[in-house]
């Protein structure tokens, strides 16, 4: 008992000050991309052709990036050509699929839920996580939210064991053929009203497994998605920021 107390004192208090203080992210962290303005049409086309996951597109000779498809690659061919740079900004979650498209405007982060939904979930949100073909990186960094560094519970958000106890589902993975029906069953078991959160590039658009015949390229039209959290995998702060914004807590 004494040794437990001694160790507890040595380990100290470790819960971060977020959201009062901004988190310190590693210098090499790749967050919100900044697109280079006024690219020549050739440079634009080269950047579009370079991405293996078709995250970039040419919108009237202006480069546009789909953050739902972007894997924030360290060797991004478009970044190497100077078409974009990755900033250190971890805030990426959006409410609508079209908001994931970033051109030269300001990136539109998620809105808060409407008043009724905020009243229901704002102070207590229980989520059932469903891994549908995920590689366990998204899952691992969601699990991390429960550790004492983040302490998700202090925001009233909790992952629960049963869909019957949940206010929504948090989906990871590209939705493999073999998980499709289990995902739909889990969703059906959650009582109304309910939220669907797509966490990670796979759940949003198939991620690195896009166009494999064994996956559904993410949730797609299978379920109505209320929050998109980009990243491969999303940083725990990206997920936390998205959740808190959705609940109107930021």
């Amino acid at each position: 008992m004494l040794s437990i107390i001694r160790e507890r004192l040595r380990q100290g208090h470790r819960t971060g000050k977020y959201p009062k203080e901004e988190p310190q992210l590693p210098e090499r962290f790749r967050g919100l991309p900044q697109l280079t303005r006024d690219l020549s049409p050739q440079a634009c086309a080269a950047a579009v052709a370079g991405c293996p996951f078709a995250a970039l597109s040419n919108n009237d000779d202006t480069l546009q990036i789909n953050l739902g498809r972007c894997l924030f690659c360290a060797d991004c061919p478009a970044a190497e050509q100077g078409a974009l740079t990755f900033s250190n900004d971890y805030r990426l979650a959006t409410r609508k699929h079209e908001d994931l498209l970033l051109g030269d405007e300001v990136y539109r982060l998620t809105d808060r839920l409407n008043k009724r939904m905020r009243k229901l979930f704002g102070r207590s949100l229980k989520l059932r996580q469903v891994s549908a073909g995920g590689c366990n990186a998204c899952e691992a960094d969601l699990n991390v939210l429960g550790t004492l560094g983040f302490d998700l519970g202090r925001f009233g958000i909790q992952f629960v064991a049963s869909p019957r106890h949940a206010d929504g589902i948090m989906v990871t993975g590209p939705v493999s053929e073999n998980m499709k029906s289990a995902l739909l069953d889990t969703y059906a078991a959650v009582p109304e009203p309910k939220l669907v959160i797509a966490s990670g590039a796979c759940a949003i658009g198939g991620g690195p497994f896009r166009d494999s015949p064994e996956v559904n390229n993410g949730i797609g039209d299978l379920l109505p998605v209320d929050l998109f959290i980009p990243g491969c995998p999303p940083h725990p702060y990206t997920a936390l920021d998205g959740l808190l914004r959705l609940l109107g807590r930021l």
């Binding site: 073909g133 995920g134 493999s176 053929e177 998980m179 494999s212």
Partner: peptide
């Protein structure tokens, strides 16, 4: 097999 994404084939 629930997580099968067909990596080897890809």
């Amino acid at each position: 097999g629930f997580q099968h994404r067909g990596i080897e084939q890809m």
